[in-house]
Amino acid sequence: MTVLRGLRSGLDFLYLAAGVLAALCLIAILGLIVVQMLARWTGEVFPGAPDYAGYAMAAASFLAFANALNRGSHIRVSILLNAVPEGFRRVLEIWCFGIGTAVMWYFTYYAYRFVYWSWKFNDVSQGQDRTPLWIPQSVMLFGGAVLAVALTDHLIHVIFRGDHRITRDLDDQSHAE
């Protein structure tokens, strides 16, 4: 049981830590935008600022996917889920998490190949930043993998415990609309 409990807290830490890193990326985006503006006003150049902001954007998104899932932020159509009886809902949830898990592990596998080939081809950014692309792309790979793990985690939970572990905060979710 200790092993399981350790695994549990380890995973929860992983989701949270990735989410916090994502939040730091948002701050980085803000910083990059401000620095670029300052540079423009003072006649200086900050080559590659838009490219770096783009990488931070991808990192912010992918690192936060799992955290957003756990907090019920990702949008889904829940009419059917809410309408069906308890037992059938469990089957439906298994189907949803099953599809999600499959999609994200598929994504993660190909993201690994993608990063590997970027590294192998020595793919560099075509912008003025000249960043070797495998570096920012690795963050996408990591974030995708964390989401895949989180979906698997919920799937196992639905199968063995009957319910997933998403705490839904409608208010939080609706701020995108």
Partner: peptide, 22 residues
């Protein structure tokens, strides 16, 4: 799978998109 990654990376790392989180 490779096509999926090329597209998703290109769409996700876009500079114009940064207005959104801000």
């Amino acid at each position: 799978g490779d096509v999926m990654l090329t597209t998703i990376w290109s769409a996700s790392s876009s500079w114009t998109l940064t207005a959104l989180p801000m």
